[in-house]
């Protein structure tokens, strides 16, 4: 097997609040192969979001190495991390985090504004992404005119539009009803199967976890591989 796409070695994270030290992650080792669909479960406060944030390069570990596609992002400063995130990470939030003043189309276009693309190219990419998530008819709607499930699909389109190396989703169905959640999970599964998009998803929902091929359990700072799912 080739080198894993994402490789964590001895990753620790300790939060400091006043004099207290809160150890959240204690020596995490994790390999995620390209094209993998990984689910991450664990009790509330166990550090799932923290771990995801470290892989997304929005937070830095107290110690350890996080190697993504050959480069150790724990060594990068914010000035280098921002463009790195733009190239490699598609992040999906629990609460969608769409910009309320922008339409679906403009929200999806936002990350493309950082790339040197012509207006037409941007438009094409945005429309392709929105069609892919099934919102071709909602492009000019504002977030408040969309349902939760639709908002999350816009958010997925925004994560996809830059063709990132991998997708990270923090409880993407946490705020959705069962039907919408199922749609969103179908979409993520489809992206993984059809486009081999490497995906790491944090979830509390066992049904969501079932969609993944690999399931990890995080508790008391330790990571355990639970089972290998379907496929």
């Amino acid at each position: 097997m080739s080198d894993p796409l994402i490789q964590l070695r001895g990753v620790t994270k300790v939060y400091r609040r006043d004099q207290f030290e809160i150890p959240v992650l204690e020596g995490i080792d994790l390999d995620i192969a390209e094209g993998e669909f990984v689910a991450l479960m664990g009790p509330s406060g166990s550090g799932k979001s923290t771990l995801l944030n470290l892989m997304a390069g929005v937070d830095s570990p107290t110690s350890g190495r996080i190697v993504v596609a050959g480069s150790d992002i724990a060594q990068l400063g914010e000035g280098e991390l921002a463009p790195w995130r733009h190239r490699n990470v598609g992040f999906i939030f629990q609460f969608y985090n769409l910009i309320p003043v922008l339409t679906a189309r403009e929200n999806v276009e936002l990350p493309l504004k950082l790339a040197s693309l012509s207006r037409q190219d941007r438009r094409l990419k945005v429309e392709t992404a929105l069609e892919l998530v099934g919102l071709a008819d909602r492009m000019d709607h504002y977030p408040k005119q969309l349902s939760g499930g639709q908002k999350q699909r816009v958010a997925i389109a925004r994560a996809l539009v830059t063709a990132p190396t991998f997708l990270l989703a923090d409880e993407p169905t946490g705020d959705l009803d069962a039907a919408s959640a199922s749609d969103v999970l179908d979409l993520l599964g489809q992206l993984n199967q059809e486009f081999q998009k490497t995906t790491v998803m944090v979830t509390h929902d066992p049904r969501a976890a079932e969609r993944a091929r690999v399931l990890y359990h995080l508790e008391k700072g330790q990571l355990q591989r639970e089972h290998t799912g379907a496929v």
Binding site: A56, V58, E78, G79, A82, P83, W84, R85, H86, R87, V89, F91, F93, N97, I99, L110, P111, L114, R158, T162
Partner: peptide, 16 residues
Amino acid sequence: TSEVAVLKTLGFRQGH
């Protein structure tokens, strides 16, 4: 604040 955090997550730099 959260909007700024989202923009940064998307790869917007401090200067942006």
